[in-house]
Simulated scan of single mutants.
Amino acid sequence: MTTLRKLLPSIHIHPVLLVFIIISFLTGTFVELMTILSIVVVHEFGHFIMASIFRWRIRGIILWIFGGVMDTDEHGTRPLHEEVLVTIAGPMQHVWIYIILFLLSGNQFVPAGMIDIAFFYNTVILLFNLLPIWPLDGGKLVFLIMSAFFPYRQAYYSIILFSLCLNVLLIVLLLSAVPFTLSAFLLFSFLTMDNRKNWKERSYVFMRFLLRRYQGDINVTHTGFIEVSCYGLLMDVFHKFYRDKQHTIHVIFPGGIRQSINEMDCLHNYFYKRQYDKPMGEIMRHIS
C-alpha cells in the first residue's frame, strides 16, 4: 500500500469544483462533467508520469474548474528540455484518448452518444490547454521558449502580463463580438483572477528562483557574463540572470575599469549579508 502511494499522486479537488459537481447532479449534466474530469485526470497523469521519470519533487494533482495542475517543487531549477517534455506530456495524452475513442466507436456496448461527447470534450480541452495563457500548457511553453532567450525575470513577468491582457481581450470578445457562453466567460474570468494573483506574487516567484540558485539547486548548461555599473545594486544584477546559466558579473567602474565577481558571491551578499542597498562598487571593495 505504501509503495502504491509513492507511485500514484495524491489528487485534490478545488472547493469550487465541488460546487460544480453538486450543480451537475441537479441539472442532469453529471455524465458530461465526469467525462471532462476523466479527460483532465488522464491529461495530468501525462505530466505526472513524465515528471516522475525525471525524478521531480511532486506534491500532487489539483483539479480546478478550468482543468488541473500538477503541484511540484520544481520552478526554473530543472533543465529546459525536461520542463518542455513534462509540459507537452499532458497534451500528448489526448492523442491516446482519440485512438481509444476510435477503437471503441464500433463497439456496441458503448453508446455512440457517449463517444461523441468524449470526442467533443477531448478536442475542446486540448485546444483550450494549448492557448498561450499562463498557467495553461500553451502559456508554459511560451514562457519556456522566452526563458531560453531572455532573463528569467523578464520572461516570467512578460508571460503573466501577456496572459492577463489576452484574457481581458477574450472576455471582451465574448461579451461583444462572438456568441456568449457562460462556461467560457467563467473560465476566462477565473484565469484572469489567477493571472492577477500571479502578477501580485511575481516578486515572490523571482525570489524563490534566486534562493534556489543560492542553495545550489540549479541546472547549469551554459556560462555567461553580465555587465553592471558600480553604482548598480545586487538586484540589478539578478534581473539579468538566465536560467540554466552560470554567470560571471563584470562591474564597470569610472574610466572603464572592470572587476569580476561570480554570481554565488552576489547571492551570498544578498541573502546572508543582506546588503540590499549597497552599490556594487562598495561590495567589490569589501570582497577585495
Rank of each mutant, 00 (worst) to 15 (best):
V16A: 13
L8K: 03
S203Q: 11
F225Q: 14
H268T: 15
R202S: 13
I53V: 15
R208Q: 12
I49Q: 02
Y242T: 06
F119K: 14
T248Y: 02
W56D: 03
V95C: 09
D217G: 00
I88W: 06
L175P: 04
R202T: 04
I160Q: 06
G256M: 06
E44G: 07
L211Y: 15
P279T: 02
S24W: 11
R55E: 12
P279Y: 03
F271E: 03
G255M: 09
F253P: 03
T248N: 05
F206S: 03
I100S: 02
S147Q: 08
H247W: 12
D71N: 07
I99K: 06
I65M: 14
D194S: 10
S158W: 14
I88R: 03
Y156F: 13
E82D: 13
V251E: 03
I99P: 01
P111M: 08
N219S: 15
N262R: 08
M1D: 07
L18E: 10
S163N: 00
I11Y: 07
L169Q: 11
R213E: 08
L182N: 09
K240S: 10
Q93M: 15
A155M: 02
I283N: 06
I61Y: 09
Q215I: 10
F30D: 00
Q246T: 01
M34F: 14
T181A: 13
S229E: 06
L210G: 05
I49K: 08
R57L: 02
L85I: 08
T72R: 12
Q108M: 11
L182C: 01
P279I: 02
M70F: 07
V41Y: 01
M70G: 04
L144R: 05
F253N: 08
L173Y: 15
F188M: 07
L186K: 07
I22Y: 10
V42G: 01
V69P: 01
G216A: 09
E32Y: 07
Y152I: 01
Y276I: 13
L18S: 10
G67T: 05
M92G: 02
G28P: 13
Y121D: 02
R258F: 09
L33N: 12
L173N: 13
H14K: 01
I261C: 05
Y242H: 15
P135A: 09
G60N: 06
R258C: 05
M1S: 11
I36N: 03
T2L: 13
